[in-house]
Design a protein around this nucleic acid. Structure first.
Length: 833
RNA sequence: GCGGAAGUGGUGAAAUGGCAAACACACUAGCCUUAGGAGCUAGCGCCCAAAAGGCUUAGGGGUUCAAGUCCCCUCUUCCGCACCA
């Protein structure tokens, strides 16, 4: 078609034009006040760190969320779709050291740049609710929450072994240490240091955080499992062993107290206080224990803590089993961890694989105390690990089942005061102190007279000083700002020192989504009524890398806020979606691999619509997506086809006005059927499966089918109302995926208002049904032929059609048809002998 | 070791237990042309010269009239946890 060439799709003209118009209308993506009569829908993508550049992972994340937000607008919901910046953190300080730019300036200029990228990508965010966590109007509420937690004993200070990253020059939370390495520095071994630090008592909610997972059925099972593992609940018993000739006691933790008569030694962690005490009086032991510690450290550095050889050293002292008075040797073992359970275990080599390995190595006796429940069964080899057996060699408890024995042993221990049932969690309290500058100051004051004194509410925010030299290394940078440090004690008025540590940046992201509901509030973190209206988040979308970190901290914070009476929901998000990574050439995009594709480059070459639509089309959203430039070019060509098709027939469509297509037939009917099938499919994709790759494919099929009858369109054979319905609905369906093109074409078609506020097209069930169906015919399960039958044909008619088919006839000739299965609309299968 | 997800053309992938490979990318051939990162037509899982036909969803068993899909075993890849007592 010669005239087709006149019409050229040029996103570099269309997109900036609409970007300008949208920027001029701040109400376009604004959520209604929370008393709106329409049902609410809160869709949220995780907020980015303002590194300076969006990457393709962001583009994908936000393309998914934006498509959903636009779809929900079109479905008539009051949609909240906000965006903000996780703006505190180490990179700003590192950049400052490198370029001599203040962290605040670096961060704010990055935010401005990334905001432009978001706008250029056509993301529909409600910027009137923008949250920037490094600004005092936000972080003052971090301080406010910290004080509330302090009042309730949920924030506290203690000296303990903490993770120290030498590259970050700060302490890290347990959640930020991965395989003994820093989460930000893959090659940096995290050291252990003894420091006084602030902690948040997340363990107070351990059980609730665990139980809540069962109800989060809108969360991926993977994330729930990861959190369950992380919380690591373990039910067991603590038993106190006496120490011969000494006053100390040793408490051991065990999940198998039923095997306690088989305990032939007690094993202590090398850092256990009793070991320290014994070693203080025994230079030889001290030397050996130090060797064990050195070895552990090396294993940690090698990253294979689980693989080191189990070994230990005898202390020469003995423990007394309180159940039978038996004297067993006390060892120090390198596989016993101080920070799990009590840091001490009873070793039962007969019924524990690891204890068995250890006992064999050091010729410690192995004793059978559990036998199979079936007394006729052959005696199994040790170690025998089953929990279904009965006790033997266990004094008065012999003959009991393992389960019954556990119960009775606990009762005896409790009655006699040497033990109790306990529950141990792997989850540890959240260490939030950071010896860095660019974070929320912890609102505490150290007074010589009054000790730790919280900053009174009316003195919040404790402002982060702007004029600071952070080029010096060592210690908290805030400690070098005398105006900041030297204060008077709010209690006694005497001289005092301000806390110089700042908060972990994960504090910022633990509650930011509540602030969106009332972002400008200067009297409280947010009005409870606003949060009450919008929460929980209906759909949260982000990367799975936050499965433990952000997603467990923010669940904790929600429970604390609930207990403070600010909110009524127990969980922050009803549904969570974790999208896959964007990879290229088989590897995650990263600067070091040199396989990074810049969104700006994609946008300038193919347009934002093409980049976004490709991100949705190339793979289902939960899978990894392989970025292929040829694929983006393909989507761009498709958008060009849509553009030319709609522009070419826009005047025909407009001429129909609001006139509906009447009793369509022939090609018109065929096209309208395809149209309504497409609507039904895409609506379903949004509602449940989220396979937007097939939504896009369905639109492509529809466009292919319309294009195939171009001659009939050009000749005017297709009535204008049909053309109108086809093109208008096509544009509406494109709107969530390619907003710029949809806006442009909506305009071409004379549509009223913004296309993303137009109602989502309903699919007409009458029209999704075909007149005739193709039904495959199988013989013994193998496809033989396909017959056409009316779509309302009953089983008898379908069977008759199948038997009348020539191919079928020739195949069953001379044979016996044993059985015929007819599945209406699906298949016919003849069982033939 | 424990737990989870996955394995389908040259590539990305599609398929409520009912015609495997839709939709694209790449490739091949052709057309068109004010030559563009354009458009159009056709072909494109494997075997066979072609047709007819046969084979095909990591491998092996099973359930079923019917299995990529459900069950069992094995292998591979990715992810999480891991001396957790």
């Amino acid at each position: 078609m010669a005239e087709d060439k006149e019409i050229r799709y040029d996103p570099s003209v269309i997109e900036p034009k609409w970007q300008q118009r949208w920027a001029a209308d701040p109400t376009l993506y604004a959520a209604d006040a929370f008393d709106s009569g329409r049902p609410k829908y809160y869709v949220l993508e995780m907020l980015p760190y303002p590194s300076g550049q969006l990457h393709m992972g962001h583009v994908r994340n936000y393309a998914i969320g934006d498509a959903l937000a636009r779809h929900m607008w079109m479905r008539g919901y009051n949609v909240l779709h906000p965006m903000g910046w996780d703006a505190f953190g180490l990179p700003a300080e590192n950049a400052a050291l490198k370029n001599n730019t203040p962290p605040r300036q670096w961060t704010l200029s990055n935010i401005a740049g990334m905001k432009r990228q978001f706008e250029r990508l056509g993301m529909g965010f409600d910027w009137s609710r923008e949250v920037t966590t490094c600004l005092p109007d936000y972080y003052r509420w971090n301080q406010w929450f910290f004080l509330r937690m302090y009042e309730r004993g949920l924030a506290y200070r203690k000296k303990s072994k903490v993770n120290w990253c030498p590259d970050c020059a700060t302490v890290l939370a347990n959640e930020q240490v991965i395989d003994g390495r820093c989460w930000r520095h893959e090659d940096t071994i995290v050291e252990q240091r003894d420091l006084v630090q602030w902690f948040l008592r997340i363990t107070a909610y351990a059980q609730e955080l665990l139980d809540g997972l069962d109800k989060l059925d809108g969360w991926p099972e993977k994330v729930r499992t990861m959190q369950r593992n992380w919380i690591g609940r373990s039910e067991g018993t603590e038993v106190e062993f006496g120490v011969e000739n000494r006053s100390e006691k040793v408490r051991v933790f065990t999940t198998r107290v039923d095997t306690i008569f088989g305990a032939t030694s007690v094993q202590l962690a090398p850092e256990h206080p009793l070991v320290t005490a014994l070693a203080a009086a025994d230079a030889g032991l001290k030397k050996q224990v130090n060797e064990l510690l050195e070895e552990q450290k090396k294993a940690r550095e090698a990253g294979d803590v689980g693989a080191i050889d189990k070994h230990g050293v005898p202390t020469g002292h003995f423990a007394i089993n309180p159940f039978n008075g038996e004297r067993v040797p006390i060892w120090v073992a390198n596989y016993v961890l101080l920070d799990y359970g009590t840091g001490a275990i009873m070793s039962v080599p007969g019924h524990d694989a690891r204890d068995f390995e250890f006992a064999t190595k050091y010729a410690i006796p192995v004793r059978r105390v559990i036998a199979p429940a079936d007394s006729n069964a052959e005696e199994p080899e040790l170690p025998y690990l089953s929990e279904d057996g009965v006790l033997v060699n266990s004094g008065e408890f012999s003959g009991l089942s393992c389960e019954a024995a556990q119960k009775q042993l606990r009762e005896v221990a409790a009655r006699q005061g040497f033990g109790e049932a306990t529950i141990t969690f792997r989850l540890k309290d959240w260490g939030v102190s950071r010896q860095r500058y660019w974070g929320t100051p912890i609102p505490m004051i150290h007074c010589e007279r009054d000790g730790i004194v919280p900053v009174p509410d009316d003195q919040l925010p404790v402002l982060l000083p702007e004029q600071i030299d952070i080029t010096q290394q060592g210690g908290s940078p805030l400690g070098r700002v005398p105006e900041f440090v030297n204060v008077t004690c709010p209690k006694c008025g005497g001289p005092a020192r301000r806390e110089t540590d700042t908060m972990d940046t994960f504090v910022d992201s633990s509650w930011y989504f509540y602030r969106y509901t009332d972002a400008k509030n200067s009297a409280e973190p947010f009005a409870p009524a606003a949060a009450q209206y919008w929460f929980p988040i209906d759909q949260y979308i982000g990367g799975v890398e936050h499965a433990i970190l952000h997603l467990i901290y923010s669940r904790f914070w929600t429970k604390v806020m609930r207990d403070l009476g600010l909110i009524t929901n127990d969980e922050p998000a009803r549904r969570l979606f974790t999208q896959g990574m964007v990879i290229k050439d088989g590897a995650k995009m990263s600067k070091s691999k040199g396989n990074v594709v810049s969104p700006d480059e994609m946008v300038s070459r193919f347009g934002a619509d093409a980049a976004r639509m490709y991100a949705l089309f190339a793979a289902p959203p939960d899978r990894d997506l392989d970025w292929q430039e040829d694929g983006v070019a393909g989507v761009s060509r498709f958008l060009g086809r849509v553009y030319r098709l709609v522009v070419k027939y826009a005047s025909v469509a407009r001429s129909a006005g609001e006139q509906a297509a009447e009793s369509p037939a022939g090609t018109s009917l065929k096209l309208l059927r395809k149209l309504h099938q497409t609507i039904a499919k895409i609506t379903l994709d949004f509602e449940g499966r989220w396979h937007f790759n097939t939504s896009v494919a369905a639109i492509m099929e529809l466009v292919n089918e319309i294009q195939a009858v171009d001659a009939q369109l050009a000749s005017g054979e297709i009535p204008a109302p049909v053309v109108h319905e086809l093109l208008r609905t096509l544009v509406l369906m494109m709107a969530p995926f390619a907003p710029y093109l949809a806006a442009e074409l909506w305009d071409e078609l004379g549509g009223e208002g913004a296309v993303f506020r137009a109602p989502w097209p309903p699919s007409n069930p009458e029209l999704t049904r075909e007149d005739e169906l193709e039904v495959p015919v199988q013989i013994n399960g193998k496809l033989v032929s396909v017959v056409r039958v009316p779509s309302d044909a009953g089983p008898d008619a379908i069977q008759a059609a199948a038997l009348a088919d020539p191919k079928v006839k020739s195949r069953i000739e001379g044979k016996t048809v044993v059985k015929i299965i007819v599945v209406p609309r699906k298949t016919v299968n003849l069982v033939v002998k």
